[in-house]
């Protein structure tokens, strides 16, 4: 059994589907999905939020429009409190590395995540620790993701840069790594860099 770190922050979701390269998790609260590109962890496995959706609990049953007589969107949920239980938010995370003992490694773990494993949102300390090297960029670029990988890579780096004091330096270093990885595909590189530019 993998041990759960006592200091970890609050769990936000639970794994409901897992493969070697990705896992999906249902969020405990409707709409409380971590932002695209966030670093999450289940057990020892690290993933990057690469997709999210909110759907009906039952695949065959579509929600119906309820707000015709309501003043605001919030009022829809207030007048039908069961809605929060009939809908669910899910995230898909691309596996980017795992903890091997004390060491963080940035390649695929030997086994996929466990179903019902709790998913935690990583805190700045852990993000800094993880993003000391950029090996995960290669995994992300090659992953088969529900969202265009340029978007995911850019979002991930933007998210990570917030955990670093000097976010520009971090982004330049990451950009250089990308430039090396995408040396024969300038257009992809350009797309990603365009999405990285600090405001």
């Amino acid at each position: 059994m993998r041990s759960i770190n006592k200091d970890s922050p609050k769990k936000i979701a639970e794994v409901i589907e897992a493969s070697a390269t990705q896992f999906s998790a249902q969020c405990y609260e409707l709409y409380e999905i971590p932002p695209l590109g966030s670093l999450v962890r289940t057990g020892d496995i690290y993933g990057v939020v690469a997709g999210a959706e909110t759907t009906s609990l039952e695949p065959g049953r579509k929600p119906i429009a309820r707000g015709k007589d309501e003043a605001s969107e919030e009022a829809v949920y207030e007048s039908s409190p069961q809605l929060a239980k009939l809908l669910r938010s899910e995230l898909t995370a691309a596996v980017v590395g795992f903890k091997n003992g004390d060491k963080v490694v940035q390649y695929l773990p030997p086994q996929p995540a466990r179903i019902h494993g709790f998913v935690y949102l990583c805190q700045p300390d852990e993000i800094r620790d993880f993003s000391r090297s950029f090996g995960f960029l290669n995994t992300l670029i090659d992953a088969d993701l529900p969202v265009p990988d340029e978007e995911v890579v850019a979002a991930t780096l933007r998210q990570m840069s917030q955990a670093h004091g000097d976010s520009r330096t971090f982004l330049v270093a990451a950009g250089k790594e990308l430039a090396a990885l995408l040396s024969n595909d300038y257009l992809r590189l350009k797309n990603i860099l365009g999405r990285l530019t600090p405001a």
């Binding site: 330049v172 950009g175 430039a179 024969n184 595909d185 860099l193």
Partner: peptide, 26 residues
């Protein structure tokens, strides 16, 4: 340049970030 397309559609070098990233890599 690593990719010929870089020369055909040059990046926006006025952006110091892009310039920093591409110098010495692409």
């Amino acid at each position: 340049v690593t990719d010929e397309r870089l020369a055909i559609s040059p990046p926006d070098v006025n952006d110091p970030f892009i310039a920093d990233v591409l110098t010495g890599t692409s």
